[in-house]
Design a protein around this nucleic acid. Structure first.
Ligand code: ZN
Length: 189
DNA sequence: CGGCTTTGACCTGCGC
DNA sequence: GCGCAGGTCAAAGCCG
């Protein structure tokens, strides 16, 4: 079941500014807006989040002032973007489309599984990874033409900490209805 | 009844 | 070439 329809959703260009601009003002934050507003289950904040493009070429971090500790990486083994350091052999790229989609990594504290960030997600798999004590959940956007994927993983020692990795871009809006704000931003896509 | 979660099987890439 | 780890699908069951 690969990609039946050949679409070139390459929003990389948009993302590019994210890493370069010191003044975080790209479209990405838009989602955060929804997150903060839609979250009604009892979460609080987004301590930090990373925006990784492809093989971890760039990484943007936002936090209260603590720009450090990716934490458990001290042992130099575990990393969400491990592909970047451990097996960066993917340079070959096969010659076709591989992992072209950008990855947005968010680290949130005290989060429930399926946070409503404005989109509907359907869980399509769960797997336990080696470097994590807890299983990793795979979600996919329930839209027809949107194959955005989300990967949620809990930290080994901190169950209250979850890493949410978004893969790809939505080609629709969270609430395609009577919106005229943040949506505008995304519309540019 | 429909949509979504769950769980095991299956596939692929990579290392050894 | 085989084994491991990670990722995805699909059937069944559950919940609304
Ligand atoms: Zn979507």
């Amino acid at each position: 079941m690969e990609f039946g329809q050949g679409e070139d959703l390459d929003g990389l260009g948009l993302m590019a500014q994210v890493q370069t601009s010191s003044s975080y003002q790209p479209e990405v934050p838009v989602s955060f807006c929804n997150i903060s507003g839609s979250i009604v289950s009892g979460k609080h904040d987004l301590p930090k989040f990373w925006v990784n493009e492809e093989v971890g070429l760039s990484e943007v971090r936002f936090s209260n002032g603590n720009t450090d500790q990716i934490s458990s990486n001290k042992d130099g083994s575990s990393s969400w973007w491990k592909s970047a350091s451990t097996s960066l052999e993917r340079n070959k790229m096969k010659g076709r489309r591989k992992m072209r989609e950008p990855r947005f990594c968010f680290q949130t504290r005290s989060d429930v599984d399926v946070l409503d960030d404005g989109y509907k997600w359907r869980k399509y798999g769960q797997k336990v990874v080696k470097n994590s004590l807890h299983p990793r959940s795979y979600y996919r956007c329930t839209h027809s033409n949107c194959r955005v994927k989300k990967r949620v993983e809990r930290l080994s020692e901190d169950c209250r900490m979850v890493i949410t990795t978004y893969e790809g871009r939505h080609n629709h809006t969270p609430c395609d209805d009577t919106n005229s704000d943040e949506q505008n931003c995304i519309s540019s896509f």
